[in-house]
Amino acid sequence: MTSFFARIEASGIATTISQSVPLNGVLSGLHLVGLTLLVGSVLVSSLRLFGVVLPHEPVAEVTRAARRGIVLGLAISVASGLLLLSPRISRASANYIFQLKMLLLCAAAAFHFAIYRNAARGTGRTWLPPWVAGTLGLMLWSAVVLAGAAFILIE
């Protein structure tokens, strides 16, 4: 694993990113935009699952755009996150806050695609009550954000 990380850090992309502050800034901005899109969409659709935002509109109607936003936001966040990580992957992977963030990210993504997405479609094809799925989804993605913020501050 160590040599694999060393190869990533020595790659042309990682070297270019590590030597350019503006590129780091753009990638960080994109990472935040992706995160905002992702968590904002989760927040809106979860608030609908709780029945507090637009309670008289069908769940599927309110969450349709949000479900696309979650997938697009996740794709932007992961792509920009991998690029930001490439010059310092050895150091980051040794950090326990970063390890926690990755664990939470995997759990949140797995929960989204296995359970939350069905609950947000409002089809009833989920064993969890909608408000429980909304609460768990919100907690998992909020934990990813908190771990990310803690990683930035500690690093």
Binding site: V39, G40, A65
Partner: peptide, 17 residues
Amino acid sequence: EAVHLLGLALMGGLVLL
């Protein structure tokens, strides 16, 4: 900062909706 970020995310979600 975490509350600020969550606020920004919710704002983004509402604006996008």
